[in-house]
Amino acid sequence: MREEIMAVSAEALVGEVAKLKVLGYRLVTLSCTELDASNLDILYHFDKDLGLKHLRLTAPKAAAVPSISPVYFAALLVENEIQDFFGLRFEGLVVDYRGTLYLEEEALKTPYCRFSLRSADQREGPAAALDAETNHPNAEKF
């Protein structure tokens, strides 16, 4: 990537984001990618005068990430989207759809997780995970 990327930890995240807001940055969006079975990579993209700046957070799937929507209201949709797609929990969301922003009950849970089909709530025990995998009509496609 051409632009600078700064690594942040989950504890320092909200502070860093608030600092950027004071500096006059606009939140563009968040991009989430699955790294392996237990970790997600979240990129926070910011923009100021057509220049981009990225923050990189490596988040374990099991732990909740602090939401930046109290700082940037615009983050609420994308954080809800990541909750839908990856089953990651964001703490302190302004409006929390609880994983139903896009997906209905019968749809695939956490569809963007290639390594497991478990959602955050079904994390207890391998049996629940197996259920989620076999019950879904589209599960065999991926």
Binding site: V28, T29, S31, C32, T33, F73, A74, L77, V78
Partner: peptide
């Protein structure tokens, strides 16, 4: 590709 992430303009204009 590993990941294609699309942020569309209307997504940003809903808030």
């Amino acid at each position: 590709l590993d990941r294609v992430r699309i942020r569309t303009p209307t997504f940003a204009n809903i808030p």
